[in-house]
């Protein structure tokens, strides 16, 4: 199971980094989202992988899983969700102001240079 999780984290990270290096706003945001999934999985694994065990420490329970990473992941998910929502609205505002979804948000007046930029990518 460790190998599978490691491959999943690596794959998500690889795709995320690839998307983040694109020149359009939406792929960059998607890349960030993928990276945050990979990070969440990684955080989850920091408490070791245990199957079929409750996250509760109790005298009767000998076999348990560490509850702290689960709480940490929950916090990280909430924060990541809020951040993604904000960056999406920011990207939309940039799109409406510049008429283009390029990362550099070139102004409409410079439309000739922005088409050149478009061709380059």
């Amino acid at each position: 199971m460790e190998a599978m999780l490691a491959v999943a984290i690596g794959l998500l990270f690889g795709c995320g980094v690839y998307l983040m290096l694109r020149a359009r706003t939406l792929p960059v945001i998607l890349g960030l989202a993928l990276i945050s999934y990979a990070v969440n999985l990684f955080l989850f694994a920091s408490g070791r992988l245990v199957i079929n065990a409750p996250p509760i420490i109790h005298a009767d329970i000998k076999h348990y899983t560490d509850p702290i990473p689960q709480a940490l992941v929950l916090t990280a998910i909430v924060i990541g969700f809020g951040m993604t929502a904000y960056i999406l609205t920011l990207a939309l505002r940039g799109l409406s102001e510049s008429g283009d979804d390029h990362i550099d948000m070139v102004e409409k007046a410079e439309s000739t240079s922005s088409t050149q930029v478009k061709k380059r990518h």
Binding site: T25, I87, L90, R93, G94, E97, S98, I103, D104, M105
Partner: peptide
């Protein structure tokens, strides 16, 4: 636009 660009 400047703020959106720098902010992004």
């Amino acid at each position: 636009l400047i703020k959106s660009r720098a902010g992004f």
